[in-house]
Design a protein around this nucleic acid. Structure first.
Lengths: 215, 215
DNA sequence: TAACAAACCAAGCACTTGCTTAGTTTGTTG
DNA sequence: CAACAAACTAAGCAAGTGCTTGGTTTGTTA
């Protein structure tokens, strides 16, 4: 059974249902445009170097107007991260549901997370990973709960894979190593180069699985 | 032939010779204390959130006194990164020279880099990795030359390993994935927990090498 | 079209930032 | 001990920061 990817129409429907449920902010709304501009700036310049004037400029409003939508710059960061997890957690679960064997499910996790951090819709994911320390304590707690839920999806699959001897490494350690490897791609991978995201996902999968055995 | 580690006395001698050659700043000098304090703050708070007053406080001097030693806060960041590369490049080369087979040499690279980013002497290494975008263009160019030299050490070994089919992945891609996996450890690994750095290095090595073959 | 709320503007306040400057202390060397 | 340089202090400036405030515009609904 070959790996079943997540297609665009599935993904688009998923986003719509999340918006309808009030879990995700519509990108075309005022808040949505603000969040998108903020995420882009946070990723390219970093949270600290991004000023509320930068954000306002990008959106095309005055800096003071931002605080009509969010109480503080910190609240924007928090919202960006929350949106990133909610969207990508749903994507992960959908991708998992399309595949049956553990190897394919692991493949799905790796590819989904690569896409999340590399592609356009995933700028926010890079912010989540690399601006963690800019989160103030109270917000950190809140996002941590979502993040734990996200990590549990990974750990479930990896634990099963470990029992089946599909992987040799302790699930927790392998997850940490993969987190680093995957999130770092945001610093070097260029989407329109020689290496496709699919190929990169396969290479990463090959590292993770125990190729002593025939799987 | 088992893997030969780098012992403390070798490492200590290496540092002394680098200081004598004027390549490394002595930690006990005024400049050295300033660099160490800066590196620690840059790592824990980030470059942007670290003020010159923070640094001065840590060292025990007035904020203005800093500029007797370095022309700007940016120059301190640059010096921290330069020192990190110079020290760890020398450590890498020494560790390589102690081992003969490719597998052991790859082991040496992975362990050295893990130590560099986890242990005390390597706080600066974490700064190098995670504060890259805080470097201004001119400095970035300067550090990039050293960094390329450092990366070449890795690529040489990985290319040979690829020819010997010790590894299956393209050397460049494998290096990027390992960079991410190794540098990310700074965010989760606790030196005095259950997992030793040596074990972590072996697990990472196991992922990298092609275990279809007997090596 | 009246009433209202969401979205936004224009101006600026209080504070922090990196860095400067003029002068003092400390340590070293002929 | 005289001479000098390295290391440091004390005070503060100019620019930039997040955020506030009082008011205006825009869009929607009864």
């Amino acid at each position: 059974m070959p790996y079943v990817p997540l297609n665009d129409s599935d993904a688009s429907l998923l986003v719509k249902s999340l918006i309808d449920d009030g879990l995700l902010v519509d990108e075309s709304s005022a808040k949505g445009r603000l969040l998108k501009a903020s995420a882009e700036l946070f990723k390219s310049k970093g949270y600290d170097k991004t000023t509320v004037r930068d954000i306002a400029n990008q959106v095309g409003i005055q800096s003071g107007s931002i605080f009509h939508h969010y109480a503080s710059k910190q609240a924007i960061l928090c919202a960006v991260m929350e949106q990133a997890i909610i969207l990508n957690m749903a994507r992960l679960r959908l991708a998992l549901s399309l595949n049956e064997t553990l190897k394919e499910q692991l493949h799905a996790l790796i590819l989904s997370e690569l896409q999340a951090i590399i592609l356009d819709n995933g700028i926010a994911m890079a912010v989540l990973v690399y601006e963690w320390r800019s989160l103030e304590n109270e917000n950190k707690q809140k996002i941590l709960e979502l993040r734990d839920e996200y990590e549990q999806i990974w750990l479930d699959i990896l634990t099963q894979a470990h029992h089946q001897q599909l992987i040799n490494t302790t699930p927790m350690v392998l997850r940490k190593l993969l987190t680093g490897a995957i999130s770092w791609t945001t610093n070097w991978y260029k989407p329109h180069g020689e290496l496709s995201i699919d190929e990169l996902a396969e290479m990463t999968l090959a590292l993770a699985i125990n190729n002593n055995l025939k799987n």
